[in-house]
Design a protein around this nucleic acid. Sequence first.
DNA 1: CGACCGATTGACT
DNA 2: GTCAATCGGTCGG
Length: 196
Amino acid sequence: MKKLPRSFYLQPTLVVAKKLLGKYFVRKIGDEILTGKIVEVEAYLGENDPASHAYRGKTKRNEVMFMNGGHLYVYFTYGMHFCANIVTEDAGKGRAVLIRAVEPLTGIELMKKNRKRIFTEHSLINLTNGPAKFCQAFGIEREQNGTDLLGDEICLTDGVDIPPSKIVATTRIGIKNGKEKKWRFYIKGNPLVSKK
DNA sequence: CGACCGATTGACT
DNA sequence: GTCAATCGGTCGG
């Protein structure tokens, strides 16, 4: 599986968001390799987007969003959860794509261990079908904020091709401002897409 | 400095 | 369906 080059992340954010569907998110923890196929994302367009953390400019919290594309922006919210974003475009833009859900492929036992909830049955639905669940399963916390996705710890690789007819565009979840924009994308019919 | 609230989740009526 | 958990960022006084 080929690692995505820097140039992939420097494309326009909405293009990257759609192309991220079907790509593999790879996270190395010691000898274990966790892999998940990205099935749901949301785009946040920096200074033009009132829902984005970068809307009011660069701060200590969101400075990673203003690095050049191909870095990981991790933020803490609701006093207990982490969410992970893929930074896009050139430095200074403050744009990123939130990973909302992935389909577990490898390292599933470790993902289960990382999640507090106990998974008895065959169903893996609740393992990674939400932005904070995905972070928990993949062990992504404050420490991973700013990680370069061209390094060894975390990277993205070519996954499977998703034809445009399988991509659904709809409004984003859990925000108040800018909620009319259809900047949430997911793979049609995939059972791991988060619901609401 | 204090009040409010969030790119959420899971437990409970 | 409702709601608490839990804390750091942001905004108003």
